[in-house]
Computed example of a mutant assay.
Amino acid sequence: MATNRITFDDLPSNVLAAVEERIGPVLKSETVSQGFNSEIAARVFTDSGSCFVKGLRADHKRVWTQRREAEVNPYLHGIAPALLWQIEEAGWVLLGFENLKGHHADYTADSPDLPKVADLLRRLGEVPCPEIELRRAEQRLQAYAAKPSDLDYFAGRSLLHTDLNDHNVIVDDSAYLVDWAWATSGAAWLDAGYWVVWLMAAGRHEPESAEQWAREIPAWRVAPADGIAAFARATANVWEEIAGHDTDEWTARMLNASRRWASFRQRA
């Protein structure tokens, strides 16, 4: 469910002052509309440059996601924008990140962004899973697996992003993953699987062409076929729950893509 968004200037004056102690006087700010996990998401500009600020109230039920992003960021050099500072002030938790200059990834079938995203996932696969508290893929998917034994396929010690939404991938000369709120440990091939569904939904790929891109990721090429089928079924069940009885257009696309992929994998 989306978190209500407020503007940067709506923050309490002492919180704004704490930010300016870090970056200098703010000349302007631009609210970012995409994303669901933050109450504040804005590009903030000063004489010396810019940064991306995101945050939640300290009593928000998902404030742990802010702290998770801060914990995982030092391990993501070249994969995610660098965390420049963090503030806990007057009931707010804010993170200040490097402001990337690129565009949101284009997942359409002939997009020049796709090789860069595949390279990003290959590089992520080379990052050792840090010794910090992370959710585990088999736990997150426990309620959605068709049978308990399917969960064994999802377990592992690889660092995963798990939300390959095209708005979470910024592309310039290279590609970067933002919004690490749901960083997870699990089987190395799972992020490629998440990407398959997003390619089908956002880029209107068929299952075969989406999986062709997944095969660019080494971990996917050695993933067990039964495990992929189990993950496809579980993913469809996740989106069935998210969609509920009255779904919007965006969620409907994800539900349709996940159903199509699960059906394709059942036949494969």
Rank of each mutant, 00 (worst) to 15 (best):
A2N: 12
T3W: 02
R5D: 11
T7V: 11
F8D: 02
D9T: 12
S13D: 13
A17C: 02
P25S: 08
V26T: 06
L27C: 08
V32S: 11
N37A: 08
S38N: 14
S38Y: 06
S38C: 06
A41Q: 07
R43D: 13
R43P: 01
T46V: 05
D47Q: 12
F52W: 00
F52G: 10
V53I: 15
K54T: 07
R57C: 03
R57G: 06
A58S: 15
D59I: 10
H60E: 15
K61L: 09
K61V: 09
R62V: 07
V63C: 09
W64H: 11
W64E: 10
T65K: 13
T65S: 14
Q66S: 15
E69L: 00
E69I: 02
A70K: 02
E71W: 10
V72M: 00
N73S: 08
P74V: 06
L76G: 04
L83C: 10
L84P: 03
Q86G: 04
E88R: 07
E88F: 01
W92Q: 13
W92V: 15
V93N: 11
L100N: 01
L100S: 01
H103C: 08
H104M: 06
H104C: 06
A105D: 00
T108H: 14
A109Y: 09
P112F: 02
D113Y: 03
P115T: 04
K116N: 05
V117G: 00
A118V: 13
D119N: 07
E126C: 15
E126S: 12
V127N: 12
P128N: 10
E131F: 03
E133D: 15
R136A: 08
E138N: 15
R140A: 09
R140L: 15
L141D: 04
Q142R: 14
Q142V: 08
A143V: 04
A145K: 03
D150Q: 03
Y153K: 14
S158E: 11
L159S: 10
D166T: 14
N168V: 04
V169D: 02
I170D: 10
I170N: 00
V171W: 04
D172V: 10
S174F: 14
W182K: 12
T184P: 06
S185M: 13
S185C: 11
A187G: 12
Y194I: 05
W195H: 03
L199N: 01
A201H: 03
A202T: 07
G203V: 15
H205V: 00
E206M: 11
E211S: 09
Q212G: 04
A214T: 05
R215Q: 14
I217K: 06
A219V: 07
R221N: 12
P224D: 02
A225I: 10
D226I: 00
D226S: 11
G227Y: 03
A229E: 13
F231N: 05
F231P: 03
A232Q: 01
R233H: 05
N237V: 07
N237Y: 02
I242W: 13
I242R: 07
G244K: 03
H245N: 12
E249G: 08
E249Y: 08
R253W: 06
M254R: 14
S258A: 11
R259N: 14
W261R: 00
W261Q: 00
S263L: 10
F264S: 14
R265L: 13
A268F: 05
